[in-house]
Amino acid sequence: MPSTEPPHAGERSGWFATTHWSVILSARDTASPKGAEALERLCRTYWYPLYAFARRTGAHPEDAQDATQSFFADLFRRGSLQQADPEKGRFRNFLLVAFKRFLANQNEHRHAQKRGGAGVQVTWDTDLAERRYQIEPHASWPAERAFERRWALTLLEQTLARLRSEWSVAGKAGEFDHLKGFLTVDREPPSYAAAAAALGVAEGALRVAVHRLRHRFRELFREEIGHTVARPDDIDDEIRHLLEILAE
């Protein structure tokens, strides 16, 4: 487990998780390509919570998309990262605070964009974003809370997508579909015996597979969160926070 290990083994062992966010933080002064790449990856993953936040604060779909895209462009171009505080250490917090500030000064930022923002462009399917937004429950929630919930779900989506792709690569996409249900239950149902029969394996083997799936899910989820915090030590705190958000 990456986080439980002493961070001494160096790059060779591969268990010292270098978080994207920590790369960004360390790179913020130099605007290195590595930092930009890490930021792009994060933004590509977490744009939707910001979009949802913008929508929740009353923006039209087009405006929300516009604002989100401008925000990212600005982030890359201007090095807003200077404002990030490594001690506070949450990409989630940073992104929301920065976005709120951006929205408040939106006119200025629009202007800036019109001048021609250089750097990375993050694009996405607008229609899809809006469709997703429409099925979100709790329309009455405050925008911050909706953002945090959406953030947690995005992390989970990301984790599950990686998990699925790993199983697909191993040629076990069908098995994944049968097993994923066991991620959310401690006891039967769903029935282990039924799943084992459906997959044509022994129940003992199925239970091992479920255990492996949960183990891998845990690893990947922690890894995903690891990308958004400054230090591996923060992962457990962040997990607790996400759980609180979702428990509401």
């Binding site: 487990m1 986080s3 439980t4 997703r132 099925i135 979100e136 429950p137 947690a152 779900l153 989970l156 989506e157 599950l160 699925r164 994923k180 249900g181 991620l183 959310t184 239950v185 401690d186 255990h211 492996r212 949960r214 183990h215 899910f217 845990r218 989820f221 922690r222 457990d236 997990i239 607790r240 996400l242 759980l243 979702l246 428990a247």
Partner: peptide, 27 residues
């Protein structure tokens, strides 16, 4: 289950049942 549950799985349980307990060294 919320309509936007990832993979149709309860997000709360995904975290609570797999991660809320102290991290175990497993396998």
């Amino acid at each position: 289950l919320p309509a936007d549950a990832p993979e149709g799985l309860c997000p709360r349980c995904l975290i609570a049942r797999n991660l809320s307990e102290p991290t175990r060294v497993a396998a």
